[in-house]
Design a protein around this nucleic acid. Structure first.
Lengths: 298, 298
DNA sequence: TATATAATTTCGCAAAACGCGAAATAAGGT
DNA sequence: ACCTTATTTCGCGTTTTGCGAAATTATATA
């Protein structure tokens, strides 16, 4: 390549002002530097681009050609810079998000929606993964922002507590346990439940716990979503076990009792993690802020 | 400006090959240099342009934008380079030519025409000037190639003998001096002449020489061009004084006698001059070659 | 005619950018 | 556990670049 963008910009100024000195002043650079840039340029090109006249300079025919192209090239370069600035500032870009299935099922859709409203040009690429893998991929740099269970180790990344949720037992108003403050898992095995389908790891966990206690989880019905569970409980088909955040908003209007489930494993906190907050891309930084500012009640 | 053309070209290669190392090898540059170029670039832009993956790299969304623009910018830059190469090689360009009126009147049109046939894209800008000014402007660099009278001093420029012409007296076949080998100026003042119009410095010179000799140049008729002089002489209206090169081609067919004018000043050699032959632009070098190769008989 | 004025170019030096190879680092694949 | 394939970091030397001072050149002015 015979020229560089700085020389092109200087050349534009030189021709516009008809003088190397004037251009040097305008562009805040020493006259001598500009002069040598052009002498070097002409050497490389093998042709003069400026006629040296008594009171300044004027483009040679080759200079006119250079000038025309310089304008085009510089305009393109500026457009590129401007466009890239959007990425730097986070107005534009992509955030690679990974979340575990529970987070996706429970609250991520709402968070995504509100983020999209605020930053319509930022694309969110969501991957559903197990929490351990998420931490791993964050550390690797393959994921910008991850949402994962608070119970997994997350050394080597920056993690922030997000939703501090807890599993609760949902009961219709007249149910025997509806009035209690808290229950143990074994206490509720006497009653029929509204279960989730097999795909849910949460539900598999319940089944295993019941089995460990030498009991079975008696299912009145199985549904596919948290929302389905809630509706079935309302219809008095059985007890449900759900994250508090999922039912809390509906508890009063549905006339449901939300009874705390007092077990180690019923703590279902979520963390948000990034590799290095200070090094996040603009868009990812925006998304992280958004997540942290929309923390939900525990 | 956030980037330079070299980085853009490297970026194109990196994305195309999906790897910094491969691109470095292709572009004959050390891997470390390429790596640092991008790390610097990303710093300046404030956003990453490459995702570092396990087996190489891939563009981020910002990188895709950069890539798109890089292509456009590089293509433009290459076009510019190619176009400018024509100027360097002399296939294209402008040659600022200065010549004195005699040269223009006598032979320059023919030289220009043949040069244009050989190099149609080279523009010749002709200025008609006095010989001293021509030498001056060559030294100044305001003129690329000059054609001027050999009698003026031409120190400080490179000059080459061009047309070594001589003024001759043209007489119709039966004229008293037609048979002579050579004549002095005073010898021909006894006869009527075919004169040129006042604008001609050549003719003013004759008038002055006659006056210095205490005589007058008797004019039978005045015409505007060398060619007109010749035709009037053919018609037997008087003697003419013309550069030999102008009449020689017609002398036989017109039945004219061409008699050498034996005076110091009748030597009318022309020189071609340039400031520095080695430093000429491509086009100017071509024109100089053309001039020197089309030297005319004296 | 001598002297200012306005422009470019040349020069020497210092600072910054750049390239290179070696070593460090990282993640898979065998 | 070791090898392979990448990128990154580091130290060093070279090249490029910028700057200010001085040289140069041509015109304008006194």
């Amino acid at each position: 390549m015979d020229f560089d963008l700085i020389t092109l910009r200087l050349f534009e100024a030189v021709v516009r002002l008809g003088s190397i000195s004037a251009a040097a002043e305008e562009q805040n650079i020493a006259v001598s530097a500009v002069s040598r840039r052009f002498s070097d340029l002409e050497h490389r090109l093998g042709t003069a681009v400026l006629y040296r006249k008594v009171r300044g300079v004027a483009p040679t025919p080759a200079g006119e050609v250079l000038l025309r192209h310089a304008g085009n090239i510089l305009r393109l370069a500026e457009r590129a810079s401007a466009e890239l600035a959007d990425y730097a500032e986070g107005d534009r870009g992509q955030v690679r998000v990974a979340a575990n299935p529970s987070a996706i099922a429970e609250f991520l859709p709402a968070v995504f929606a509100s983020f999209r409203d605020k930053h319509p040009a930022v694309k969110l690429a969501l991957a559903e993964q197990m929490s351990d893998d998420i931490v791993h991929d964050i550390a690797d740099g393959q994921v910008d922002v991850g949402i994962f269970s608070a119970v997994v180790r997350h050394d080597g990344i920056e993690a922030f507590p997000f939703v501090a949720d807890r599993l609760c037992v949902i009961a219709p108003a007249g149910h025997p346990i509806a009035a209690r403050d808290g229950v143990r898992f074994v206490d509720i095995l006497d009653y029929p439940h509204v279960g989730l389908e097999d795909g849910s790891s949460l539900f598999r966990q319940f089944a295993k716990l019941a089995e460990d206690a030498g009991r079975v989880l008696e299912l009145a019905v199985r549904v596919r979503s948290f929302d389905g569970v809630r509706r079935m409980v309302v219809m008095n088909l059985g007890l449900g076990i759900l994250p508090r955040a999922v039912v809390e908003p509906y508890a009063v209007s549905d006339g449901l009792a939300v009874v705390e489930l007092r077990e180690d494993w019923s703590e279902r906190g979520f963390m948000v993690g990034v590799r290095e907050r200070a090094a996040l891309s603009g868009a990812a930084a925006r998304f992280l802020e958004h997540l942290l500012s929309s923390k939900m009640a525990g």
